[in-house]
Amino acid sequence: MKLTYLAEELGYVPQCLPDPDGTATCGYTSDLLSDVMGNAPEDSILITVQAHKNAVAVASLAGMKAIVLCSRRTPSQDMLDTAEKEGIAIFTTADNQFSASWKIARGLSLV
């Protein structure tokens, strides 16, 4: 799935999109960063409410492609700067993690 799907089809707001051609193959929903670190699949989208730059560090180290910040959380400027540098896309949405998860799963043709 192209990451731009999140903006075009789901209406999520791109806050940072270092690679407009970027794609993802899976998703992972969690607010526990060590859970993400240990278990999130590569090339996936992190669905979370953790809007700080440590989430970017974890996504980057785990080889993830994008972060969707749910429930109207907004990223801080240093989070966006880090994401740009690490090549991680960030989207924001009013959806909660459950809604974001099933919508993204559908986009990934997993359901």
Binding site: D31, L32, L33, S34, T48, N54
Partner: peptide, 8 residues
């Protein structure tokens, strides 16, 4: 902050 889940 999402840390301290006892999984480190």
């Amino acid at each position: 902050l999402g840390f301290g889940a006892g999984m480190g």
